[in-house]
Design a protein around this nucleic acid. Structure first.
Lengths: 208, 208
DNA sequence: AGGGCGACTTACAACATTGTCAACGGCCGA
DNA sequence: TCGGCCGTTGACAATGTTGTAAGTCGCCCT
């Protein structure tokens, strides 16, 4: 006898595929643009199958957001845990940007922010990151016998990084094309390298 | 005889009111969230009246975006034309941010960017602004007998300002609350003042 | 073997939304 | 005064969307 022809291969493989494809669509068209039938068509199931797994459209959105959130947390943590935060800050900025932009997290966060959906996961690590950045900064200053700026300054650096990455991810291409048409920097890598230099510069500044 | 009871007061006052209210809604719920019936209810007309004036839903969106775009251009120009660009940069940053954020332009631009609608108006002035900023910078450097960094550096400053304002407008509150919960800066004014200082600092830097 | 269960489908209900149509009433120019 | 135009309306058509109901199929456990 042949193995299972095609049905129910894993217990529920479809659930995962739905989540994956819905996630891709969500960051493309936003929460209001999601269409169950479209997802179903793409996945290769009927749309009630989605409702079967997630209860409702909103349940699906919630599940996708939840999943993306934990994925983002994990990505960010590994980005920082690579331990290069102190060695090559430009590479760190570029790497964080990539996990942020390349995986569509930035677009998703923007969609959610605009739609008024809470985005706890996305911001949950920010406080921690600011603490870490400031701790490293303070240690380095102490080693050099300099006076370190207050925590607020470090927090501002982190916030600025956030905003810059989000803005870049949302409309970086258009802004770059309009601001500096001559320079060939379609991906914005030059800009981010420049930004990383400025951030490091700031973190190395000390009080008089 | 009484004046016109209530009908057709100006030739078509309704058109303006529709544009105004649709604009407010557009920046609230985004292009996909606009509902003709809701607008009509708010304005106090029936929804075919909207279709009569703008042809279609898309026509309405287009008209609103067009209008907001020219308004933004005007706002930005006056912000810069106030002539304080050289005197009090922090005030300039704050003022630009206010016309950008307070009038909902930032949210609208974000919606449009995410939705894939072209946003020519929003970016059209950026090149010009970068040129102006660089020109002033260069003049000041020459007066002081210093070497001015290349245009790309000034353009990067402008881009960073854009991104920061956009990011701030979209999710500034959440990011601030997460990054630096202790500091009471709900409106982000302290952050923007800090940013303005950094921007000026950068613009005053010269090549070795 | 057979009952229960989970995954899934088809068909359908309920509803919202955009857009069309015919009609109406005031205003203006001929 | 009359005819036409403009802004507007109510009713309706067409379509798409979420959600429900009932039934099918295969698997697992007893």
């Amino acid at each position: 006898m042949p193995k299972k022809t095609k049905k129910t291969a894993p217990p529920s493989d479809a659930r995962e595929r739905i989540l994956t494809i819905a996630g891709r669509m969500l960051q493309q068209v936003g929460p209001d643009g999601l269409r169950l039938q479209e997802i179903a068509r793409e996945v290769g199931v009927s749309h009630p199958a989605i409702l079967h797994h997630f209860g409702s459209r909103e349940g699906l959105v919630h599940a996708v957001v939840e999943r993306a959130g934990t994925a983002l947390e994990a990505d960010i943590v590994t980005s920082f845990a690579a331990g290069e935060a102190e060695k090559d800050p430009a590479a760190l900025v570029e790497r964080v940007f990539r996990t942020f932009y390349g995986n569509g997290h930035a677009r998703l966060i923007a969609w959610l922010s605009l739609s008024g959906v809470s985005q706890d996961h996305a911001t949950s690590k920010l406080g921690e990151i600011a603490q870490i950045v400031h701790a490293i900064r303070k240690r380095k200053h102490e080693e050099a016998g300099l006076r370190c700026p207050p925590f607020e300054d470090s927090a501002n650096v982190v916030m600025l990084s956030c905003f810059a990455m989000l803005g870049d991810a949302i409309c970086g291409q258009a802004v770059r094309a309009a601001t500096n048409p001559a320079k060939k920097d379609p991906t914005g890598e030059r800009f981010r390298r420049w930004l990383a230099e400025r951030l490091v510069e700031r973190l190395e500044t000390s009080l008089p």
